[in-house]
């Protein structure tokens, strides 16, 4: 199991819809709008790094998502 913290910036004022859209992505365990340098943060969990890449790609393609930064869990 590999986790990632996905930091998202949305187009202006769109964070509520983006949060709902991200919530639909199966690998997303937790998602919430935030204050600070980002608009939304998601906790993503997948079986492997390939599935994680696909989940993050899907998030980055959602309408309203302008920018994502992914912090992938170090594998040991």
């Amino acid at each position: 199991m590999v986790s990632a913290c996905v930091l998202v910036r949305t187009s202006h004022g769109k964070f509520e819809e983006v949060v709902e859209r991200i919530r639909q992505v199966k690998a997303v365990k937790r998602v919430f709008p935030v204050l600070g340098r980002y608009d939304v943060v998601a906790d993503v969990e997948c079986a492997g790094i390939k599935d994680l890449g696909e989940a993050v790609l899907r998030i980055s393609r959602l309408a309203g998502v302008v920018f994502t930064e992914t912090l992938v869990e170090v594998q040991r």
Partner: peptide, 16 residues
């Protein structure tokens, strides 16, 4: 703390 892990990238640890 619900979740915490070491990360690659600009930060070293992410905490939920």
């Amino acid at each position: 703390v619900r979740k915490a892990f070491l990360t690659y990238g600009r930060f070293d640890i992410a905490v939920f």
